[in-house]
Design a protein around this nucleic acid. Structure first.
Length: 252
DNA sequence: ATGTCGGTGTCTCACCGA
């Protein structure tokens, strides 16, 4: 149900998502509605929905009004809140960009806690720019001082999960090598020197309906592809309010 | 330390961020 097709994000979308440059006509011609937040040159997020325009609920995170980066957009889709994010890269470390990353993470943390208090299923999806564990990096020792793997950032991700979110990919593939990103450098894709930095975080109501989650790895092999591959999840389609025993629901 | 992209302005190459 949710993936790049329905709820996706533009990574470093640049001019593609800047005001006036977003290809909304082509998207509509393909049968989708969209909401987006973009800026010139860098950053950008969007949510696409087949057949209708998503109901926009927020652009930008609360907590730092002077922050002009286009990194968060939120919409209601089929009774779910979909938060689509592009967390700052944070390199180099140590430097102001790393501090900005931690500040942004804290703002996400605080806002995510508010979302969990709502009686609505929530999905927080996007490029988190963090490999949460050593399993998520092809060569962890090389990344220890990189902003994507610094211990402060991994701890921030863990603190977010500890609010009660379910990491969809890791929930269904706890011990596998699963990567979502391969650098353009060093023939990374051919060597499978990848990173897991794109995550689907599900509130408990959504996690209970999680059927599948995976990465369309082959897309990374296309000519002129993004350095990220599409990540998707599939949810059991059932009413939000359900009566009866759990095993009855499975017959839905 | 290194490498490859796409976007942008200095503008058909040189930079920058990722």
């Amino acid at each position: 149900m949710v993936g790049r097709g329905v709820a996706g994000h533009c990574l470093s979308a640049g001019a593609e998502s800047a005001p006036g440059k977003f290809p909304i006509k082509a998207i509509e011609a393909a049968g989708y509605g969209a909401v987006w937040q973009g800026q010139k040159s860098w950053n950008g997020v969007a949510i696409l929905l087949k057949g209708q325009e998503p109901h926009l609920t927020r652009k930008g995170l609360p907590g730092e009004p002077e922050d002009a980066n286009s990194r968060y957009i939120e919409a209601v889709v089929d009774g779910h809140i979909i938060g689509c994010l592009y967390l700052p890269n944070g390199n180099p470390y140590p430097a102001p960009k790393f501090d900005y990353k931690l500040r942004w993470f804290k703002r996400l943390h605080d806002y995510a806690a508010e979302l969990l208090e709502l009686a609505i299923p929530v999905i927080l999806v996007g490029d988190y720019n963090v490999m949460p564990t050593e399993l998520d990096v092809y060569k962890p020792e090389r990344w220890m001082n990189d902003a994507l793997f610094r211990i402060e950032v991994r701890e921030a991700y863990k603190a977010l999960l500890d609010q009660g979110w379910t990491d969809a990919l890791r929930h269904l593939h706890p011990n596998e090598r699963v990567y979502t990103f391969w650098d353009y450098f060093r023939n990374a894709y051919a060597r499978d020197a990848g990173l897991l930095i794109d995550h689907f975080l599900l509130s408990s109501q959504v996690a209970a309906r999680l059927l599948r989650a995976d990465v369309d790895k082959h897309v990374r092999g296309w000519d002129h592809s993004s350095d990220h591959a599409p990540v998707w999840i599939e949810l059991k389609d059932e009413p939000i309010q359900t009566r009866g025993r759990p095993d009855e629901r499975l017959e839905g």
